Amino acid sequence: MNKSDLIDAMAADAGITKAAAKAALESLTENVTETLKKGGKVALVGWGTWSISKRAARTGRNPQTGKSIEIAAKNVVKFKAGAGFSNAVN
């Protein structure tokens, strides 16, 4: 399922227009992104939690040349599925 398919499904399930479903989805993604940028956590009970984890700088190796390279530190997004979501999938 891609973004367009998700918007169509949301509109059909909620009985709203595709424009309203698109606005709701974009609002969700923007708010989650902004909260994570600020170092916060987003938790939807029963579905899951998004959080930020810091990945330290490290030395890697280019497999083509064999040379060592420095990989910069960065923040990565983590998602931990909630019990309800995990049970529904399994």
Rank of each mutant, 00 (worst) to 15 (best):
M1G: 12
M1D: 07
N2V: 07
S4E: 11
S4D: 10
D5P: 00
L6H: 09
I7R: 00
I7M: 02
D8C: 01
M10K: 03
M10F: 11
D13W: 00
G15N: 07
G15L: 08
G15Y: 09
I16Y: 01
T17N: 00
T17H: 01
T17D: 01
K18G: 08
K18D: 08
A19S: 14
A19K: 15
A19R: 14
A20H: 04
A20F: 03
A20D: 12
K22I: 06
A23V: 05
L25E: 06
L25H: 02
L25N: 06
E26R: 05
E26A: 06
E26K: 09
S27N: 11
L28Y: 07
E30T: 15
N31M: 09
V32A: 07
L36Y: 04
L36M: 06
K37R: 11
K37H: 05
K38I: 03
K41A: 07
V42M: 03
V42Y: 03
A43P: 00
L44H: 00
V45M: 07
G46Q: 06
G46A: 11
G46V: 12
G48Q: 09
S51T: 15
I52A: 11
I52D: 08
I52C: 10
S53N: 15
K54D: 15
A57F: 11
R58T: 14
T59V: 14
G60W: 02
N62D: 14
P63K: 05
P63L: 08
Q64P: 05
Q64R: 15
T65K: 05
G66L: 10
S68F: 10
I69G: 00
I71W: 01
I71T: 00
A72W: 06
A72I: 01
A73D: 10
A73V: 09
K74H: 11
K74E: 06
K74Y: 06
V76E: 13
V76H: 04
V76Q: 09
V76P: 01
V77Q: 05
K78C: 10
F79D: 07
F79N: 05
K80G: 04
A81N: 06
G82Y: 02
G82H: 02
G82A: 04
S86G: 03
A88P: 03
A88L: 08
V89M: 07
V89P: 00
